[in-house]
């Protein structure tokens, strides 16, 4: 009994410390995102909650849905206009299983690189509705290099070994040429399917409306388009529209403005995710 009382007191003490930290961090760029996610066949409905909180030199992130919880910790070292290095770890636990994730990315002068490693013993979408419906091991390596001021080479390499032990690889090489608009050309392979890549990004008007489109076509077909337009001259609020169309048929439509975000998804089944973000630190 005494032991239990001691444990209770200790738990209460930890909660008070955590609350104190939260309150002291109030106004320092923390945010709360409330959401509701629904999916048809099989039917699934869950509220979602995302919390971002600065903790000393780190950013603490927590996310919660029905039957699963994820916690992440990240930080970065800034070199002003020369670049930055950021890194983070994340762990998720739910009734369906568990997952871990580590990532690091850096940019310094003409070079940018990123590395991520994920492992989960269940589908990652069972631990967080926003994640892909894949489990097992996933490794990703990305790099970008500026050949000169207006030409950039990009390379993406990926490796997956799913829960059945089937391994798949992917690779994509791109070349981007920036003039008034940016044109991207590339070649890629994903799961033994080859494709070509064409991209275009540019401003549509003087008000800063920007369109970014990428088409992958060949044995794999996917069109991605993102339209962003400022809603005020200070660019504090933007309207973002995202569309992804793929064949075999899959589609995603996203809308974002004033902290509100809606994502409708179809990949053989429909899902809808509505979210609203409350920023306490003037985040945009």
């Amino acid at each position: 009994m005494e032991y239990l009382r001691h444990r209770y007191q200790r738990s209460l003490h930890l909660v008070i410390i955590a609350l104190g930290l939260q309150l002291s961090a109030f106004g320092l760029g923390q945010s709360l995102t409330f959401g509701l996610y629904g999916r048809l066949s099989p039917e699934y409905l869950t509220p979602t909650l995302e919390v971002a909180l600065p903790l000393g030199g780190f950013d603490l992130q927590a996310r919660l849905q029905r039957g699963a919880l994820g916690v992440g910790l990240g930080s970065a070292v800034e070199f002003s206009a020369l670049g930055r290095v950021s890194y983070g770890v994340q762990a998720s636990l739910g009734f369906a299983g568990w997952g871990i994730q580590g990532s690091a990315s850096g940019i310094f002068g003409p070079v940018a690189a990123s590395l991520e490693a994920l492992y989960s013993n269940t589908l990652r979408s069972s631990l967080w509705v926003g994640d892909e419906a894949q489990g097992g091991l996933k490794l990703g390596l990305g790099g970008r290099y500026r050949l000169e001021a207006r030409q950039t080479l990009g390379l993406q390499l990926g490796f997956n070994r799913d829960l059945l032990g089937i391994a798949r690889g992917s690779g994509e090489l791109t070349y981007a040429l920036r003039q008034a608009q940016t044109y991207t050309f590339g070649l890629g392979v994903e799961d033994s399917r080859f494709y070509g890549l064409l991209g275009w990004r540019g401003e549509l008007n003087g008000a800063g409306t920007l369109l970014d489109t990428t088409l992958r076509a060949g044995q794999l077909n996917r069109l991605e388009a993102a339209l962003t337009t400022p809603l005020d001259p200070e660019q504090l609020n933007n309207l973002k529209l995202r569309l992804t169309l793929a064949y075999p048929w899959a589609a995603n439509l996203g809308l974002e403005a004033y902290g509100f975000r809606a994502d409708a998804d179809y990949d053989g089944r429909f899902s809808l995710w509505l979210r609203y973000t409350l920023d306490f630190g003037g985040n945009e």
């Binding site: 800034e78 206009a81 020369l82 002068g109 003409p110 001021a149």
Partner: peptide, 30 residues
């Protein structure tokens, strides 16, 4: 930044309260 070429397109905005760093290669504002 116009030169060196590795930094072209990067910019820094400094106000009384904040510093914005824009990195062209990753299209990020810190």
């Amino acid at each position: 930044f116009n030169k060196p070429a590795a930094l072209e397109g990067n910019f820094v905005v400094i106000s009384d309260k904040e510093v914005w760093n824009y990195l062209f290669l990753t299209n990020q504002v810190i």
